[in-house]
Amino acid sequence: MAAIELTGVHKRFGAVQAVRGIDLWVEPGEVVAFLGPNGAGKTTTIDMVLGLSEPTSGKVSVYGMAPKDAVRRGLVSAVMQTGGLLKDLTVAETIAYTAHLFPRSRPPTEVMARAGITEISGRLVGKCSGGEQQRLRFAMALLPDPLLLLLDEPTQGMDVEGRRSFWAAIRHDADAGRTIVFATHYLEEADAYADRVVLVRRGEIVADGTASEVKALASGRTVRATLADPDEAALRSIPGVDRVEVRGSSVVVHCADSDTVARYLLTETAAKDLEVAALGLEDAFVALTGDDSRLSPVADPGSGR
């Protein structure tokens, strides 16, 4: 049984098509990063997995049941971007309040220790920093001992130290075998903490693989040269070449090994004005997810296109 199963999910808000056909299967125990720029549809998708909104079309199921049922059974919980807290309760009272809503919950002292908020348990929520409030939300999410934990941009607005301790707590928790899906637009976060990265762009999945696969997809170099009528088949046959694009009188080759491509172009063809450019991770991410993608079809998005 899948922890999350999305089938042909679309979500429209009036004229805005926020999610346009997402198919996703998350196995129990996976740690998945939902990576994409703001407005890519990450939060909309997470809201549907939590049953906070209904898809316009398509099907969402969590551990084989409707999201709302999974929430009611405490199978799924979340640290949301928008979830508010009551400023006039203390940290410990907020935890106790939430704990009593579930028929079974982990002991409050345990979740506070795991989220690293034991020392501030007596503090009023209104007096906690953003990072402390976020760790409080994490502690609340741990109470039902969920099989699936969703984190929506969990480190938004945190300083470096807050971010580090937050992720240390999450990572520790993931080691216990919980399924974790987190949305982020920080490539380093996805790289460092996820087993699998799902890249979303404008409501669609554009790449899906292990962090290193997506990195490989996004790394590499481009070799550009002025060359009339290049032999595309020959270029493609060079080991390490991903893609060949012909743009007017120039050719652009995306490859892992730029030296071989450059040597071929300069020795076997009439190519001139040769340029080799490295694509940084951040550039690659922008290229993969940006609105005017410089790289045309980058990966098999699985399905749903």
Partner: peptide
């Protein structure tokens, strides 16, 4: 930042999701 270490991870326990209870009275306590 550390890289993920999947080998350290414990396989998820086989839990029947249906066995998790729903609170009586809709959570009123």
């Amino acid at each position: 930042m550390s890289s993920p270490a999947p080998s350290l991870r414990v396989p998820p326990a086989a839990i029947d999701p249906q066995s998790r209870p729903v609170p009586p009275l809709g959570g009123f306590t």
